[in-house]
Design a protein around this nucleic acid. Structure first.
Length: 390
DNA sequence: GAAAAAATCGCTGCCACATACGTAG
DNA sequence: AGCTACGTATGTGGCAGCGATTTTT
């Protein structure tokens, strides 16, 4: 909805080149700059310290004042007021004051000087990984937007703490270290299904290894909900776990908390809050695990979900944060959106099954006989049997 | 420009039944 | 421990229906 207004002819042009549409506003220079000019001007160390903010994505004429999480858009005060007073739904959009863009966003990565999750609000961190998109000069504005969203999404993960449901007195759940989230959060559904419970971190081990999932058929990734359900969960953290740990980061590696039997309780959900573009079809079992926001606790168990939300403030170091963002991006890149067929035999049967308006219909006796004859003949002709399940 | 209508899009539930899985004997 | 029988749960695809969103009038 914001983009409609972007197409107008009133977008402010770059004060430097006077040709391209501006994307950032430099407060030090009091200048609106396009991506190219901003990169050129602010690549030097001194200039990179200029405080800049994104230009409002709606009017493209004023510095952004707020970041709307729902729209993933930076908006000036005027547009923010207009857009978010339009209807009750819009009013509920979570907006935060926009933060200045740290360092140089187009050149080499800026040195991390900001710690903690709140640095993410502006949508940039100056990270310099090859694919993080911050950003080469050749990349266009769309890429910028995508990377903003990507970064913001990653940030939203980092800002949250994972739920830990304490129903096993011997487990530390492998989820928290010094108030921070261990792998399972960013590695949600790395292998899907039960396998996520195998992701473990060994406090006293320095070596890392992959936890081989027992059921590896679900490869889909799950983006965690940005707020709401998971936030409201109670975190438990054994005191000794708070002391220290090594975050032996390697891209794509799984941590191993071997002294945890299960990283997650089975009833814990990975709620999904993603756009329709990000929706991937997953097997029903996996889907159910990821879509039930508040599973009803079994009888005799304590409902840890019903209490007031308790949040432990994030204590991420910049290195931790960077590691997680990288891991998040890696996983996002490897996400699979195809539907995973677990049982080919069932697929084969479903495809041959008679339907009425798309629904499976009962087979008549004649159809059953014909089908049996057909399948028998096939077996004799080509040794065709039941499609093996996998 | 605003409002209403129409069109489009995306998600969800339903159905039957072979197969997987768990339990008891 | 291994086997069998039985009951229950799961997964599969295409369509209708619904709500949300976008486009047209």
């Amino acid at each position: 909805m914001l983009k409609k207004e972007n197409s107008n002819n009133w977008a402010r042009v770059c004060d430097s080149c006077h040709s391209a549409t501006c994307t950032v506003y430099c407060r030090a220079d009091s200048a609106y700059l396009c991506a190219g000019c901003d990169a050129r001007i602010h690549t030097s160390l001194m200039a990179s310290r200029h405080e800049r903010v994104w230009v409002c994505e709606a009017c493209e004429r004023a510095p952004a004042a707020f970041l709307c999480k729902a729209d993933a858009a930076s908006l000036c005060a005027s547009c923010d007021a207009d857009i978010h007073s339009a209807n009750p739904l819009a009013r509920r959009h979570h907006r935060v004051p926009i933060m200045p863009i740290p360092g140089t966003i187009y050149g080499p990565p800026a040195v991390h000087t900001i710690s903690g999750g709140s640095m993410m609000i502006g949508g940039t961190t100056g990270e310099g990984t090859e694919d993080d998109g911050f950003l080469s000069l050749n990349q266009d504005a769309d890429d910028t937007t995508i990377d903003e969203e990507d970064e913001d999404e990653a940030a939203s993960w980092l800002l949250l703490n994972p739920p830990v449901k304490n129903n096993n007195k011997n487990n530390n759940y492998g989820m928290l270290f010094g108030g921070e989230v261990v792998d399972d959060y960013l590695d949600l559904a790395e292998y899907g299904g039960d396998s996520q419970f195998n992701d473990q971190y060994s406090v006293n081990q320095q070596q890392q290894h992959y936890s081989v999932p027992q059921k590896s058929y679900v490869e889909d990734s799950v983006v965690p909900v940005q707020n709401g359900q998971r936030k409201s969960l109670i975190l438990y953290q054994p005191p000794q776990q708070q002391q220290s740990h090594h975050l032996n980061f390697q891209l794509g590696m799984e941590y191993d908390n071997s002294n945890t039997g299960y990283g997650y309780p089975a009833s814990l959900s990975h709620s999904v809050s993603i756009s329709s573009m990000d929706v991937s079809v997953v097997p029903e079992s996996a889907q159910s695990e990821t879509s039930i926001s508040h599973p009803r606790p079994p009888k005799g168990t304590i409902d840890l979900f019903s209490g007031p939300p308790i949040q432990i403030p994030p204590q991420l170091t910049p290195m931790d944060r960077e590691a997680r963002v990288l891991r998040y991006r890696e996983k996002k890149k490897n996400r699979k959106f195809e539907k995973t067929i677990r049982y080919a035999s069932r697929k084969a049967y479903a495809e041959t099954r008679p339907r009425i308006k798309g629904r499976f219909a009962k087979r008549t006796d004649v159809e059953v006989e014909v089908d049996q004859m057909f399948s028998t003949q096939l077996m004799t002709d080509s040794s065709y049997g039941i499609v093996p399940s996998f």
